[in-house]
Design a protein around this nucleic acid. Structure first.
Lengths: 300, 300
DNA sequence: GCTAGTTACGTACCACGTAAGTATA
DNA sequence: TATACTTACGTGGTACGTAACTAGC
């Protein structure tokens, strides 16, 4: 097969029109480069340079070869770079499996944030139920799946499970909120006060609505929607709105007794685990993705 | 830089899923291939295969590398093939210069036929006058030019000239044609009999018309036009048509005294030469093209 | 125990450096 | 004569083969 080093050498000489300068570029001595080109010419059975006069000149055939080589070297450099990134877990393609609900409620968020930081990574997401995903994982057709704990099979040998607790949702109100005066608080009691929350995936609201036998999710009226969590906190602390969010986001306000967690079961759907094979070689990017999942969990 | 051999080896193993089979494909022994892969893994800092079980399996990172490599190897093989053809003068790009007249009258025909036989060749044709073309040739911006002998410079040192005589046109009629009875025959005497010929470039007819002071080339009425030369001969031998063609095309008929060459000056425009540099390395395809030009000349 | 991949070791070759030689301007 | 490329030669590294070893089915 072709020797990319020789081709690179050839390119340097063709570019500089000068063996000595090209040798400096290639970080070898001039005679070594001279040899390299000579051998290349012999292998190709093509005279690349006309050395009969100074400065040396590309032959017509040399020009043709040069044109061809350009693309090849370009592709080679790209592959080299890509592999370097790949080995550091910074590039490549991950095959991720998710259940429909987990993808809707938090999978997209985690992946989105992770991909923003890892712009050389590609992710191929398959949505299926946990049992199917487990099969795909075991067949090594998946690099990582996010499965529902209740559906994970009894046989947990050979798999690595990372719990995802990030998105357990709760309802919060300000201290001194009128609803706190009730002896027993149900979800229905919250409805009149309206809600504050981040842009929830539809699936989450639908699930909560269904859980509490509401005819339509629209009854859960979001008075204020924003991904700016501090804004939502301030709004809740200064009104009777009910804040729907995760505990991690209001930890400080809870400690300062500015917000109160309501004893209402939102029961966000299931407990999830990020699952990988234990006795297989993982994709170099998996540790980074798992770290992102752990951090997302810790934030909650 | 990357080593294409190693990458090829990797591909073989990935394809067969089997070191022994891959070694046979690569025409090396199995331990040698084992080493090759190991070194590649070390260089890439990526584990490509999971050897802990049989059969061995591609790791996720290995899959990623494989995808990347495919294009690279494909391009490399193409370049290799291309260079091989190039060295045999069967592929590559030629930069040809022609005058406007020569390109119209026969350059296109010769190139067309030659390209049909050399389907891997590309030709970049520049049309300019002979002096300009000579400059381009001397500056090695042309591989071959077709120049008008009258415009070629006095200084012919360092250039190689191949005369092109193929297209010297003459007029022919059947033996016993009435026009032969005239004591002196001029071109105007031929007009009433109409003409037979191949599909001439406009430039040629215009030139002939101008030469004989005809108001319009349309007066040279082509009763029959065809690229099938034997059909034209037959038609001419069995009628009073005047055949406009080159001597080579009617050589046999002339020898057999079936056709007669008329003493009429058609003076096809100029004498051309295919010109190349003498003391420069030529494109490998030039001999083949020159041969085609010589053959086209010989046919005439 | 049989198949398949690895490790160990020896060899030949190839790419490179240094030094001397040759050609061009 | 000076610059630039080539040739000659010595060396280290690498890619391969052979043979012995080890591990999975």
């Amino acid at each position: 097969m072709l020797n990319l080093n020789q081709l690179q050498h050839f390119r340097f000489v063709a570019e500089t029109g000068n063996f000595a300068a090209a040798a400096r570029k290639a970080h070898i001595t001039q005679p070594a480069l001279s040899n390299s080109i000579r051998i290349l010419e012999q292998r190709m059975k093509v005279q690349l340079f006309d050395r009969s006069e100074r400065p040396i000149r590309l032959t017509p055939a040399g020009r043709n070869v040069l044109n061809r080589i350009d693309l090849l070297l370009h592709v080679a450099r790209n592959v080299e770079k890509e592999v370097s990134y790949l080995s550091q877990g910074l590039a490549g393609e991950l095959r991720i499996g998710m259940t429909s609900v987990s993808s809707a409620s938090f999978g997209g968020i985690i992946l989105g944030k992770w991909l923003a930081k890892n712009h050389r990574m590609r992710v191929d997401v398959t949505v299926a139920d946990t049992l199917v995903l487990m099969e795909l994982l075991r067949a090594e057709k998946m690099d990582l799946i996010i499965g529902d704990a209740r559906d994970l099979p009894a046989d947990l040998s050979g798999i690595d499970m990372l719990p995802i607790t990030s998105q357990e949702g709760h309802a919060y109100c300000r201290a001194g909120h009128p609803v706190l005066a009730l002896p027993v608080i149900s979800f229905h009691d919250l409805l009149p006060y309206r809600f504050a929350g981040s842009h929830f995936p539809k699936a989450v609201l639908e699930h909560v609505a269904q859980l509490h036998n509401l005819d339509t999710p629209a009854l859960i009226e979001l008075a204020i929607e924003s991904d700016n969590i501090s804004l939502l906190r301030d709004a809740t602390m200064n009104s009777d709105l009910i804040l729907l969010t995760t505990r991690g986001c209001v930890r400080n306000a809870l400690n300062a007794n500015l917000l109160v967690e309501l004893p209402v079961e939102l029961q966000t759907p299931g407990n999830w685990y990020a699952v990988t094979l234990k006795n297989a070689v993982l994709h170099p990017a998996i540790p980074s993705l798992k770290k992102a999942i752990r951090e997302a969990s810790a934030e909650a």
